[in-house]
């Protein structure tokens, strides 16, 4: 470019007049001093660390250690309370801590019904005494387990039966005979129970009575009585009345269904007797 468009002579002559004043006399010395000054500063030994800084380091380390310990304890507590589930028990450090804080729960006993007809009868039981296993296996309700209505009914029936037997035994021990009013009251309460449940309850009461009597006689070395009458007359009568009432209700429902078709309805039809 300088060849194709060089600075012309006039311009060059003018440019040559742009002379430069010399550097100041002390420029070199000043520059070297400045360069070496930086070196001297950097060549100084490092400052002695203040005790304050060392202490600050220790304070920081202590805070760190306290923080780690607190975090460990909190996470172990959280794991022990089940926040992390079973996963936390497999963690190397946390797992043993959990085992210390919260030992593993004992395995829950699973109650399985024993076979009702055991192959070998107990040797101590006399031939006249038939000690049956409880027909209702009442398992301890497991926390969190949802009980089915059937199981709930069984538990309730068992409790009522136990209470009735206790009351009977108390009366017998005291020599108290129930008055007709008390018997009527008891029959009235029994009548409120649905027939199927009532039969099952009465059967259970008898069974419990029989078991307790057998146990008592075994302990005393006596032969128990085979039959234990328990309100049999009232029960039979109540059962019969219930059955009649159900039959009557069924018959009335059937007649109401038939009525719109113009069929004659027989009123006050005699109730068939059993």
């Amino acid at each position: 470019m300088s060849d194709t468009n060089p600075v012309d002579g006039v311009t060059a002559r003018a440019l040559d007049h742009y002379n430069v004043p010399p550097l100041s006399a002390a420029f070199t010395d000043r520059l070297i001093a400045k360069a070496l000054e930086g070196e001297e500063i950097s060549a100084l030994p490092p400052l002695i660390a203040l005790r304050r800084d060392q202490r600050r380091g220790w304070v920081r380390g202590r805070r760190l250690a306290v923080g780690v310990a607190v975090f460990s304890l909190m996470s172990a507590a959280a794991a022990a309370t089940g926040v992390f589930g079973d996963v936390a028990k497999n963690v190397p450090v946390i797992g043993p801590l959990i085992a210390i804080v919260a030992p593993a729960p004992k395995p829950k006993a699973i109650i399985t019904p024993k076979p009702k007809h055991a192959s070998a009868a107990p040797k101590l039981v006399p031939p006249l005494v038939v000690v049956e296993e409880p027909s209702i296996e009442v398992a301890e309700p497991i926390a969190g387990e949802i009980l089915t209505p059937r199981v709930r009914r069984q538990i309730r029936r068992e409790m009522i039966a136990q209470r009735v037997v206790d009351q009977i035994e108390r009366n017998e021990a005291l020599g108290i005979t129930p008055t007709p009013e008390e018997r009527a009251k008891f029959a009235e309460r029994l009548a409120k129970i649905p027939p199927v449940q009532r039969v099952a309850l009465i059967k259970r009461v008898r069974d419990i009575r029989r078991e307790r009597l057998a146990k008592m006689t075994l302990e005393a070395g006596e032969i128990p009585q085979a039959n234990i009458p328990l309100l049999e007359a009232e029960t039979r009568r109540q059962f019969r009345e219930d059955r009649l009432r159900l039959r009557e209700e069924r018959r009335l429902r059937w007649m109401q269904r038939e009525e719109p078709q113009g069929g004659s309805v027989v009123q006050n039809e005699s109730v068939p007797q059993n």
Binding site: M1, N5, V7, V10, T11, R13, A14, L15
Partner: peptide, 18 residues
């Protein structure tokens, strides 16, 4: 860039140098 600089200088200094 150099071409523009030389042209500008020539214009500015031409009269002065004459």
């Amino acid at each position: 860039l150099l071409l523009r600089a030389r042209t500008a200088l020539r214009t500015a200094l031409g009269g002065a140098a004459k």
